[in-house]
Simulated scan of single mutants.
Amino acid sequence: MRDCFNIDEMSVKDIDETVHLEEIIFSHPWSKKSIESTLLSSDNICLVVYDSEKNIQAGYCIFTTSFEDADLCRIAVLNDYRRNHLADRMLKKAFEKLETNGVKRVLLEVREGNNAAITLYKKYGFEQIGKRKNYYSEPAEDGLVFEASLSASYYHCTL
């Protein structure tokens, strides 16, 4: 595996490319305005990963925070860059930042059929705490709700 990937905090200059990736990856992409307003809130954690050899944004993640809780709202990696552990690396870096900011618990929803994501989340100590019937559309699918205690999760993960 080549290691030409840089993970940095998302900045305003990354918004247009993040919007482009949203449109490619998700059936219901976030708007530019949504991404921008989330980024501009200082408590949120937004990261991007770049292929430094090709100067291409390969993925991103977005966490919103409220006191001791955070929600993983988005995590995405372009198809050509999957299997490089980029989502894993972004989660690890985001969890370090979240813990520094006093976050204790992380919540997320994931498609019931997204086995790769579920496996990754379980590696970080996430446990299913609920199910939302028909939460997703295009295609219709149930959403699984997961929760992790931040202090107990990422320390046990190795890349």
Rank of each mutant, 00 (worst) to 15 (best):
A76T: 02
N114W: 05
L98H: 05
E141I: 07
N79M: 15
A152V: 14
R111F: 08
A152D: 14
Q128H: 03
R82N: 02
P139L: 10
F95K: 01
D14H: 09
N79A: 12
A116F: 10
C46E: 01
D88N: 15
L108S: 02
A148M: 13
F67A: 14
M10Q: 01
E36G: 13
E138W: 10
A94Q: 00
S37V: 12
G102I: 03
L150D: 04
L47M: 01
L107G: 06
S31A: 09
T119N: 14
G102A: 05
G113F: 13
V19G: 03
L39W: 03
K33Y: 13
V48S: 01
E147K: 14
T65H: 09
L39E: 02
H156K: 14
I62K: 05
E99M: 14
F67Y: 14
S42T: 09
A140T: 11
R89M: 01
F5P: 00
D16T: 12
I7D: 00
T119H: 12
A140C: 11
K54D: 05
L120R: 03
K33D: 07
A152Y: 06
H28S: 12
C46N: 03
I129F: 04
A87P: 03
D69S: 06
S11R: 08
S34E: 12
D3A: 11
E138D: 15
G59W: 00
T38N: 08
V49K: 01
E112M: 12
C61F: 01
M90H: 01
R83I: 10
L91K: 04
E22T: 11
I62Y: 02
V77M: 07
D3G: 14
I56S: 05
C4A: 14
S151A: 14
S27F: 08
K93T: 00
V145N: 07
G125K: 07
C4G: 13
Y60V: 03
L144R: 02
D51Y: 07
F126T: 04
E53D: 15
T119P: 10
D142W: 13
S66W: 06
V48M: 06
L39P: 07
T100E: 12
K33E: 13
A58I: 00
H85F: 11
Y81T: 15
A70W: 14
D142A: 12
R111G: 05
C61A: 04
E17I: 09
G59L: 02
L78E: 10
T158A: 14
D43N: 13
K92D: 04
S41M: 11
I7M: 02
F126R: 04
V49S: 00
L39R: 04
G113C: 15
S149F: 11
K54P: 03
S137N: 13
F146T: 11
R111W: 07
A152P: 09
K54C: 06
F5Q: 00
L47Y: 00
G125M: 07
F26C: 12
C4H: 15
H20G: 10
E22H: 05
L91I: 02
V49G: 00
D88I: 03
K33T: 08
E17D: 13
S52A: 10
H20K: 11
T100G: 15
R105F: 08
A58P: 03
I129A: 06
N6K: 12
W30S: 10
N44L: 09
I15R: 06
R105A: 12
L47Q: 00
